[in-house]
């Protein structure tokens, strides 16, 4: 059984709902890679509002594209993002 995670790609956005850990970080990374436009100029908004849990394997996916993404996150994952140094690209809701 793997960790539940729903990923929905929109125009310039990726919405994740569920939990991200090492069992599904690969899926998350693939979704990110796919959502980012190939020319690499547009900014992708990753919506983590529905994520209840993210660990360092999920964070490392975000770090790989830190130049080209912006994050939206809820209070539950705020401490993790802040501690990791992702607060300046995140809008907390």
């Amino acid at each position: 059984m793997s960790t539940p995670l729903d990923l929905t790609a929109g125009p310039a956005s990726l919405t994740a709902v569920g939990e991200i850990d090492m069992s599904n970080a690969g899926t998350f990374r693939a979704a990110l890679d796919a959502a980012l436009t190939p020319d690499g100029t547009a900014i992708l908004t990753v919506d983590l509002t529905g994520v209840e849990y993210i660990d360092s394997s999920g964070l490392s996916c975000l770090f790989e594209h830190v130049e080209r993404i912006r994050l939206v996150a809820g209070p539950l994952v705020a401490p993790v993002l802040t501690v990791s140094g992702l607060a300046d690209i995140t809008r907390f809701v």
Binding site: D21, M22, Y53, D55, S56, S57, P75, L76, P79
Partner: peptide
């Protein structure tokens, strides 16, 4: 809830380490 979340993350990292 906040403390619980912190504990969950920390414990999750420890377990992930052990697995990996």
């Amino acid at each position: 809830k906040m403390t619980a979340q912190n504990v969950l993350v920390a414990a999750g990292e420890a377990c992930a380490n052990a697995i990996e």
